[in-house]
Simulated scan of single mutants.
Amino acid sequence: MSIECTVIKEIDYYMESIELLFRIINKKSYQNLKTDLLKRTDEKKKAVISYQLDKLSFIQEEIERKTDVNNPVIKFYFTSFISENICIAKILFQCVRHSTFSGNKNEVIHFINNYLSAIKDNNTLELSFDDVDLRTSAYENNKTVTFTDRINNLECEPAQKWQLLELIEHSSKHAEILYEILEKTVSELKEQEIILLELKETATEYWMEYFKQHSFYKLMNSFYNIKEDSYPSKPTFIRTQIMACNRVIFYGNDENVGDYHILDVGILFDCNYKVSKRQLSNQELSNGLKLLSDPSKFEILCFIRNKKAYGQEIAAELKLTTATISHHMNTLMKLGLINIEKSDNKVYYQMNKEAVNYLLEVTKNKLLED
Rank of each mutant, 00 (worst) to 15 (best):
T202H: 09
T204S: 07
T204M: 09
E205V: 14
E205D: 13
Y206R: 09
W207T: 11
M208N: 04
M208V: 08
E209Y: 06
Y210M: 10
Y210G: 12
Y210E: 09
F211S: 10
K212Q: 08
K212C: 05
K212S: 08
Q213Y: 09
Q213A: 15
Q213R: 13
H214E: 13
S215D: 11
S215H: 00
F216Y: 12
K218I: 07
K218Y: 12
L219C: 14
M220K: 03
N221D: 12
S222H: 07
F223N: 03
F223R: 01
Y224I: 10
Y224V: 11
N225T: 11
I226L: 14
K227C: 05
E228K: 06
D229S: 14
D229V: 15
D229P: 08
Y231I: 15
Y231W: 13
P232Q: 07
K234E: 07
P235E: 12
P235R: 10
T236G: 08
T240S: 12
Q241S: 15
I242K: 01
I242E: 00
I242R: 03
M243R: 01
M243D: 02
A244F: 05
A244W: 01
A244D: 13
R247H: 04
V248C: 07
V248G: 00
I249C: 08
I249P: 02
F250S: 02
G252F: 00
N253H: 07
D254L: 05
D254K: 04
E255W: 00
E255T: 05
E255F: 06
G258A: 06
D259V: 13
D259H: 06
D259R: 08
Y260I: 12
H261Q: 12
I262H: 01
D264L: 14
V265Y: 03
G266P: 02
G266S: 05
I267D: 02
L268T: 03
D270Y: 04
C271E: 15
C271A: 15
C271Y: 13
Y273Q: 02
V275N: 10
V275T: 10
S276E: 11
L280K: 06
L280W: 03
L280S: 00
S281Y: 02
N282H: 14
N282I: 15
Q283Y: 14
G288A: 09
G288S: 05
L289Y: 01
K290P: 09
K290R: 14
L291P: 00
L291G: 04
L292M: 08
S293T: 12
D294H: 11
D294R: 04
P295F: 06
K297V: 02
K297M: 14
F298V: 12
C302P: 03
C302H: 13
C302M: 15
F303T: 07
F303W: 08
I304G: 02
R305Q: 13
Y310W: 11
G311H: 01
E313M: 09
